[in-house]
């Protein structure tokens, strides 16, 4: 009985809401995960060659870093709105916007990671007859993993949170439920969707942390001091 009433009395926490709108919540969560995964994956695919280019030619590094910083400054609502004429009202708007945001963090962190590879390791690999490609994938990338993963974690968490703004064009995952709930003053819907969103971000962060630990068994004791200063470079804009 009490559960029935919480929908009518518009309580913040409402078990009945979760029970009756389970499907709606699942759909929104899946859309949220889909948009996040697509954005981060594409972001990584774009950031990687950009970082390699920026490392190879100093002349490219300035414009690439400058451009991504400028993109990062643009508020999310404006970014999505500017992409609407390009893609129409589709999920591509949200994914593209989120990819552009993730580039700033990913390119910087990949560059930091590659720069942190000790020169001796490179020399040793070259001495063993490694070509440039094998050097990159077998030596440099594994050693760059801690910085790369730190960037990936920040990018993923920001992406999960920014996806909600996609609600303005109807592709915001859980943001859609928050938006709807805002219009109808439906407290339980807003709180449930918000909490799920944070849970999603924390889960993604922990999952990536686990992946990082598995990928870099040698770095375990020294991980903390490396991760801490990273925060300030990429701090900003969750709006």
């Amino acid at each position: 009985m009490a559960d029935d009433n919480c929908l009518i009395s518009n309580d913040w926490v409402c078990g009945e809401y979760v029970r009756t709108r389970g499907q709606e919540l699942t759909d929104a969560t899946l859309q949220h995960i889909g948009i996040t995964l697509a954005s981060v994956a594409i972001g990584l695919l774009v950031a990687f060659p950009l970082a390699l280019l920026a490392r190879r030619w100093r002349a490219v590094a300035g414009p690439v870093l400058g451009m991504t910083t400028i993109l990062y400054t643009i508020p999310s609502l404006a970014m999505f709105s500017l992409l609407v004429p390009v893609f129409g009202l589709s999920a591509a708007v949200v994914v593209t916007g989120l990819v552009l945001y993730s580039l700033t963090i990913l390119v910087r962190n990949i560059l930091t990671g590659l720069a942190s590879v000790p020169q001796e390791a490179r020399e040793a690999a070259r001495g063993m007859g490694y070509g440039p490609l094998r050097l990159l994938f077998a030596v440099e990338l594994p050693l760059a993993v801690p910085a790369l993963m730190a960037g990936l974690r920040i990018a993923t968490v920001s992406t999960v949170s920014l996806t909600t703004v996609g609600a303005i064009i109807g592709y915001g995952g859980l943001g859609n439920l928050i938006y709807e709930g805002m219009r109808s003053y439906f407290k339980a819907q807003v709180l449930t969707a918000s909490v799920l969103c944070v849970v999603l971000a924390v889960t993604a962060d922990l999952a990536l942390l686990l992946v990082q630990r598995l990928l870099t068994p040698w770095a375990r004791p020294k991980r903390r001091p490396k991760a801490a200063p990273k925060v300030r470079k990429t701090e900003k804009a969750v709006a």
Binding site: I154, V157, S158, V160, S161, L162, T164, V165, A167, G175, I178, Y179, G181, M182, Y185, K187, V190, L191, A193, S194, C197, V198, A201, V202, D205, A228, V231, E235, V238, A239
Partner: peptide, 26 residues
């Protein structure tokens, strides 16, 4: 309080601004 200073920015990143705006409105 170093842990606080670092963690607060992680929390700020994980919590969607839009959600907080709507929660405060309601």
């Amino acid at each position: 309080g170093g842990a606080l200073a670092v963690n607060i920015s992680n929390v700020g990143r994980a919590v969607p601004t839009f959600a907080v705006l709507v929660l405060l409105l309601l």
